[in-house]
Every structure is written in C-alpha cells, then in structure tokens.
Design a protein around this nucleic acid. Structure first.
Lengths: 340, 340
DNA sequence: TGCGCCGATTGAAGCGCTTCAAGTTAAAGT
DNA sequence: ACTTTAACTTGAAGCGCTTCAATCGGCGCA
C-alpha cells in the first residue's frame, strides 16, 4: 500500500553522481567539506532524481529531531493562535520547525497528542494545557523529553514555564477604571476555582484597596466567561435601581464584556453611565460596534520565548537551568471605557 | 546534546523480558500471535522501563507513516479551524493522526511546510492553499505523495479535491433576500480576480435573473473583505438619497457584512429598511449585536471527507480513482435579514 | 516409540540516513 | 626525490524498528 513508486534514496543519488554514499550526506550537511566540482555533480543528480531526504531516517541516525511540537487547548481562541504564530517564529529562528496539534478542550486528545509527539521523538514540546499541568508532562520529562508549559505555573525544578501575570492584569483593568473616575466597580467573573480568574479579581482588589475606601468593588459571579453569560449579567445590572448600579465593570473575558455591552448599551450610555473593560484582546471582539477596552496578553511573545527557551533546553542538555518567565499584560483602552 | 538519558529501546525491553526482539515487536503489532504469558511478561517489562516506541524507526522500517498533514492558510479564520477539526476526526477514524501547520497567508511558509511534510514522509497531505493550487502540490504528487486540495479546484486526474459550491452559496443568499421581499439588491464584494467571490456574485445574478426583471442587482466593489471596508461600503450607501439605496445587501464575507451593519444601523433600521446577509458563518461575527444572516460553508465536513478520501488514496495505492467532491453551502437566517 | 503438525519464538536482514576512522590524492616543504 | 600536510572521499557501523524464513517444542496419533 501507500507510496507506489518509492522515492529515490541517497544511495541512488550517490550512484548517479558516481560518488560514495557518505559524500552525498556531506553535500547535504557539510557542503564546506566537499570539493566544488563534486558538489555540483551531486546537486545535479539530486535534481535529476527529484531526491527528497528522508527525515525519519535522518533523525533516527542523528538521534535527535529538529521539530518542536505545540499542543493547544483551543485553536479557535485567538490567544492560542497568537501563541502558535510566535512559537513558529521562535522555532524558525533556531532552524527548527513547529508542528501544531489542537486538543480541542478534550483532555484525552491532549494526552494522545503528547504521546504522539513523544513517539515521534520531537525535540521538545510546548504545551498550553487543558487546565492544570498534566501528569503526562511529568512523565515525558521523566524520560528526557523537554516539555515547556504555557499559561500554567509549574513546580520549580520541574521544567520551564511561561505565564502572564493575571494579578497584574486585573490590577491594570481596575486601576484604569478608577483613573477614569469610576467609583462603584463590579467584577464580573466565573467561579474562583479557575485560577486565572481568581488572580484577576485579586489584582482588581489590590487596585481598589490602594484608594482607601473611596472605591467599592462588588463581585458578580457568572457560570462561564462567554457572551450569553455576559448578557445575563447585563440584565442583572439593568434590573437594579440606577443608584445601585456600578459605574465601572471589569469583565473577566472579552466575550463576557461583549455580552455586557450588548445588553447595557440598549438602556445606558457607554461609557458615560457605565464603563466596561474586558480581558484577552480577543480577535472575536475586535470588531464590536462599541470597541471594548481590554487587557492584552502577549501571546505572540509567549510563543516565541517559549520556543526559544525550549530550544535552549534541547541544546544545553543536562546543564540547562529551568526558567519561569512571567510576562506583563498591557492595557488597551477603547471606546467602552474612555469618555470622548 | 538533546535527550540526555536516551530512551529504552525494544531490545532493552526484550532483554528485560527475556525474549527475542521480534517477540516484542509482535506484542506491539500482532498480539494475537503471542502466547498469553509472554504477552504479560513483555508488557510488564515495557511498563517497568517506561518504553515508548520510536515512531521514526517504525515508519522507516514499515516504509509508510500513519500521519497526515494539514496545511492551512490562516488558522485565525474559523473556517479553517472547522476544517482542521473535521480532518482530525476523519484521520482518527482511520487510525491516523493529523498534524497541523499554519502558513499564515505566506506563500513561502506554505512551501516550507509542504516540503517538511514531504521530508517527514507523511502518508498524505491536505492542503487549503494560499490562492491557487501551487506547483509544489504537483511536484509532491509526482513522487508519490498524495496531496488533496481543499477549497480549490484541481485539474481532473491530478488528484482529489473538495470544494464548496460558491455559485450556489451566492444563489442562496440572493434568493433569500428576494424571498424576503427585497427588490433592489446590492452585492458588496472584492475584485473579481478572486475566484470564490466572483462565483458568489454569479450565483446572486442567477437568482436575480430568475425573477424576470422584477429585481435589480448592483455591485459595490471594495478593496478587501474585512470590517473596515464594510464600514466604508456602508458610508457609500448612506451617502445616497434614500430612494437610491438598496433594500437588500449581500456581502461577500461576514466581516464585510459586520462592517456594513455597524455603519448602516446607525441611520437605518435593520432589517426593516435594509436587510443584510454575509458569507462564511465566521465565528468572529457570531456574537455581533445584530445577529447577521450568513451562508455557512461545511468546513468540518470538508475536513472529514478530506481525511477519509486521502486515507483511501493512501490505502488503495495505484488503483485509486481521484474524486472531486462539491459540497453544498447552507443558508443561516438571523436577525439582519428577517423581519420579526 | 516414532512421525507429523502447528502455534510460539527466534534472529538476521534491511529501511535510509549520519558519522567517523581510514584511505587516497595532490600540493607543499626540505 | 622524499616526507608532510591538507583537502577530499570512502565505506562500514549503527540508529530502533518490522518482517519473515527458520527453528523449537509439545502434542496427538498410528
């Protein structure tokens, strides 16, 4: 089955060019060690035969591969797309290539892909995990395959990781609302068991605490961080007497913020009566009618640094020092929170 | 460099279990040929050693791989994400795995990934190409690697392909507007050199032609199919005297439609004064304030059928018949085009 | 007791490549 | 003319696996 006409091998090329097998290998890997004339002859033979080097055999013989793998939770989320782009770039910079797998919010799939990458002997693996760092990451590291975790903290000494400072992001968001003159803030977020959301709330609390009681912060809990829940939260706010409503809302995600704005803008002026800020700088929200302020996570940077770090772990071998990088989120102000 | 403690190999397992190398291989590939007791002993050894089969060596020895590759143009576009999901599924159904590469609208990257997949001796390649079918697809096929093209027509006999009927999609969109009582239609689209857009327009023209002059169709050309251009097109319409305005607009993409709706809804009632329909069922637009009608492309189906077809080409070998599948788009009506 | 049979197991060959010690050739040095 | 040296080239070993002809050992049967 499969490939009918099997492809020409290096020895076919060698025969055609009238040189030894090893010489063809040198042409491909150490052209400086080969005489000009031979180089040309071999290249000619390669072109004539349409030779394509078999990477499986190559990695087998070399004992190492030049491919990095990235497993993301949800390729539909622009944050992960940014990470992928960055990782690709970072990999390319080191002469590696990046292959992508989408676990689609499915834990089992994630495991499947990790195993697949392991079996394929990829040089290293970048993992933006489903929820927490999975056992399997530990297992792969155990037999020498570098795994770098994205967006999730990792025990020191276990391996490298890169996270974005969610607490700081929360702080920035609330700080911004306060700076815009808001005094009755609300945090709309999910259940605290989701670490990142909890941290964002804590950051907001810190900003509020800084202002010595001049600002209040209430919390509106929703079931999930999507647009429908945002609309639900919007209704909750609208149902209150005007004096009871917050004048600044920090939503734990952009989709949530979008839902809020949709509902609230029908009855209130945004941002005049009520300012809204989201989180993620999600591309799905970038074209909303009222542009929504947000906290951007440096996904691209995350991916790129991730690939670099992973590469250095692969290259340094035993004397590699695990690093834990914390990236800073940034505030992006748009119409939903800034009076014109 | 790289993997410090190199992983245990099959012969390590064999030694540990006190059996021959070939037996371990049989345990993994033909367990039915192995005695119960031996089976257990080998499995125990595998677990104890944490053995992970080397897929590179495996594919090398077998002469074929069990991995399919998918190269998409823009992983940020939900259509391609749907394709990826479908392909993944279709691959899994046949015991294959799907690896993803994102060419990011960059022709050179696309070529790089195709070559990479070729070198990695993937069983087959699914390609949703940058624009037209690239020369390289032909080249890979030339030396026996199946390449299936998505979303792009391919010369008969060249290989398999799957497309969505854009003409039909255009027809559906215009038909819908007409059925909703619209008589002065406008098609907002890009330059005709983009095949799919041209076909969508032709489909719309067919729907209009069917109504014997009762309906008019004008064309508004924009530079690109994104939201800003949509807003620009919206302004063009608003600048006209009311009587000169269309009452039904078919935008060649959802982002375009979104931009239109944003601008138009400020001055006009949508859908009462003006109905709008887009194209793609793009997730980026799914949460717009006024839900936008659209033509959905069966991306998931496309991916799944693609993976199946590719697999059959891999399996059938020489006596494979290339297929050209045309999938039907479907109409999704939402608030932007349907009076309540 | 001897023969044939069959399921289970073995081990060598080979997949296409890299690596490297050993070999070759020619130019340079004395 | 003879040794060094440098610049190339060679070819065999080995990466970890699958495959398959050959072998083994036990069992039923005459």
């Amino acid at each position: 089955m499969s490939t009918t006409k099997s492809m020409p091998s290096m020895s076919d090329v060698a025969a055609r060019a009238g040189v030894a097998l090893g010489t063809v290998s040198n042409v491909l890997n150490h052209p400086d060690k080969v005489a000009e004339a031979t180089l040309r002859r071999v290249h000619a033979a390669i072109d004539e035969l349409g030779f394509v080097r078999n990477n499986q055999a190559r990695s087998l013989a070399m004992g190492r591969s030049t491919t990095l793998g990235l497993v993301v939770t949800d390729i539909g989320n622009s944050f992960f797309v940014d990470i992928a782009r960055g990782a690709e770039e970072g990999a390319a910079l080191n002469g590696m290539t990046l292959l992508l797998a989408n676990s689609d919010n499915d834990y089992a799939k994630q495991e499947t892909y990790l195993d697949l990458f392991d079996q394929a002997r990829f040089a290293g693996i970048l993992l933006a995990p489903f929820e927490a760092a999975p056992e399997s990451a530990h297992r792969l590291r155990g037999h020498g395959r570098p795994v770098l975790l994205l967006n999730v903290a990792v025990p020191v000494g276990e391996g490298c990781s890169i996270v974005v400072d969610n607490e700081q992001g929360g702080y920035l968001a609330a700080r911004h609302l306060i700076d815009e003159g808001r005094r009755r803030l609300a945090f709309v977020g999910g259940p605290d068991r989701l670490e990142p959301l909890l941290e964002r709330r804590l950051g907001a609390e810190r900003a509020v605490a800084e202002t010595n009681g001049a600002v209040t912060l209430e919390e509106i809990i929703v079931g999930a961080v999507n647009a429908p829940e945002g609309r639900a939260a919007g209704s909750i706010i609208l149902d209150r007497a005007p004096a009871e409503r917050p004048d600044g809302v920090f939503a734990a995600s952009d989709l949530l913020a979008l839902g809020l704005v949709q509902t609230l803008s029908a009855a209130l002026r945004i941002p005049d009566d009520l300012a809204v800020i989201g989180y993620d700088n999600n591309s799905a929200v970038r074209e909303s009618t009222i542009p929504i302020s947000t906290i951007a996570q440096p996904g691209r940077e995350m991916g790129e640094i991730g690939a670099r770090l992973l590469w250095s772990e692969v290259a340094d071998g035993p004397d590699h020092e695990h690093e834990h990088v914390v990236l800073a989120p940034t505030l992006i102000t748009r119409a939903s929170s800034v009076r014109r």
